[in-house]
Amino acid sequence: MTVSHAPVDQAFRQITRLSGSFVLLIMLLVGTFLTIKAVRAIKSVGLWDFITTQAWSPETNHFGIAALLFGTVTVALIALVVALPLSLGGALFITEISSGWAKSILTGAIDLMAAVPSVVYGLFGLVFLQKHMVPFAYWLSTYFGWIPLFKVDGADPKNPLPNDALYTSSSLIGGVIVSMMIIPIMTSMMRESFSRAPAGEREGAYALGATRWGMIRSVVLPFGRGGIIGGTMLGLGRALGETIAVYLILSPIFDINLHVLQNGGNTVAMTIALRYGEANDFTMSALMAAGLALFLMTMAINFTASAIIARSRSGADSEA
C-alpha cells in the first residue's frame, strides 16, 4: 500500500534533503580546497616525515605536525575529562531533580554560556584561572610527580617557594578553559536526550519499587545513551578546533610535551592563528596541510559518533 504525503510534507522533505546535500557539498569543498593547498607542502617533505616530525620550520623545509597533533589531542582529552562528569551531572539535575523557576534559570544559564565568545573564556583563564590553578598543579606534581603525566621538569618538591612559571601556560590549564566552553554544548544535548525518556517506562520503574536513582540508572541513562555519546563527541570536536582561548593560554613549543602540568604546549589551530599573518606561499601550504589533518581527524570523530548514535536506543518511541 502506497502512502501519499501532503504537498506541504513533500515540500518539507525536499527542502531538508537539499539542505543536507548542501552541507555535505560544503564539507566536500572545504576538504578539496585544503587538499589542493596542502599538496605542495606535503610533497616537499613526504607524508611520513610530515606526520612524525616535531619541528615547525617551513622556511628550512623541516616541519611536521607530530607535536601539534599531540598537543591538540592532549588539550581536548583534558577538556573532555573535566567536562563529561559535569555535563552529565548537570543534565541529570536539570531534567530529573530541578523544577519550576530553578529549571528555567538553569536551562537559560547553560544556553547563555554557549553564546559567550571564546576570547572571553581565554581572558578569564589568562587573568584569573591561571594563577589560581598553580597551587593545584604544584600539589599534583609534589605528590604524584612519580607518574610521568604529572612530572614537572625542574620542580623541587622540597622548595617552600615553588617557581610558578613552571606551571603556568600548561596543557592542563588550557584543557580546563576549553572544558568550560564545551560544557554548555554537551549539557544541552544530554538534557534534551534525557527529557525524551518515555514517561511510561519512568512510571513503570517507580511502580516496581525503584528509587529515583534506580529509575535514572535503568531508564533515563540507557535511553539517553545516544545523547551522551553525541554530546561528548560534539564537545570533543569543538575542543579539537578551539583556537583563541588556547592561543591566549599556552606557551607555544614544537616538541611533544608529555607533562600536562608543565609550561608549554601547542595545537594545530593555535599554530595556524599564530603563523598565518607572516606566512609566505609555501608556509601557507604547510599551514593548510596542518589544517587538513585537523579536518580529517574531526570528520573521523564525527562520523564515528554518528554511527554509534544510529545504533543506540536514544530517540526511540515510547513503549508505553
Rank of each mutant, 00 (worst) to 15 (best):
N257H: 13
M288S: 14
L261N: 15
L258D: 12
T283N: 09
A286W: 01
G265R: 04
S285L: 05
E278W: 02
F282P: 09
G264C: 02
T267S: 13
Y276G: 01
M284F: 06
L274N: 11
D281V: 06
R275L: 02
G265N: 02
Y276S: 14
L258W: 14
T283K: 07
D281T: 13
N263P: 00
G264N: 05
T283C: 03
N257F: 03
A269P: 13
G264E: 03
T271Q: 14
E278V: 01
G265C: 04
N266I: 10
A269D: 04
N266H: 04
E278N: 13
A279V: 10
Y276P: 00
A269K: 10
L261R: 08
T267P: 05
V268K: 08
N266P: 02
M284K: 12
V260G: 05
L287T: 07
L287M: 06
V268C: 09
N257Y: 01
I272Y: 09
G277E: 08
L274V: 02
L258Q: 14
E278R: 14
R275H: 08
L258Y: 15
D281L: 12
I272H: 10
T271D: 11
H259N: 14
N263I: 02
N257D: 10
H259A: 04
M270A: 13
N263Q: 11
S285E: 03
L287Q: 07
G277M: 05
A286F: 00
S285A: 12
L287H: 11
T267I: 10
V268T: 05
M284L: 14
T267N: 04
A286T: 07
N257T: 06
L261C: 06
T267H: 04
G277N: 14
A269H: 09
M270W: 03
G277A: 11
L258V: 08
F282H: 14
M288F: 15
A279N: 08
G265K: 03
E278A: 11
H259I: 00
Y276L: 15
F282W: 09
I272G: 09
N263G: 01
T271A: 08
H259V: 00
G277Q: 15
A269L: 04
L274P: 02
S285G: 14
D281P: 00
M288W: 10
L274Y: 11
N263K: 15
R275F: 08
T283F: 01
I256Q: 12
A286H: 12
L258A: 15
G265M: 01
V260C: 07
N257M: 07
N280Q: 06
T267Y: 03
E278L: 00
A273P: 12
T267V: 04
I272E: 02
L274W: 04
A273L: 07
M284Y: 06
M288C: 12
I256V: 15
H259E: 10
T283I: 00
A273T: 08
I256C: 05
S285F: 07
M270L: 15
L274K: 07
T271I: 02
N280W: 00
G277C: 00
R275M: 07
A286V: 03
L261Y: 06
A273W: 09
L287W: 13
Y276K: 11
A279M: 04
Q262L: 01
D281Y: 00
R275C: 00
M270T: 15
A279K: 14
G264R: 08
A279R: 10
I256M: 13
H259P: 01
A286N: 10
I256H: 06
V260K: 08
V268A: 07
A286E: 10
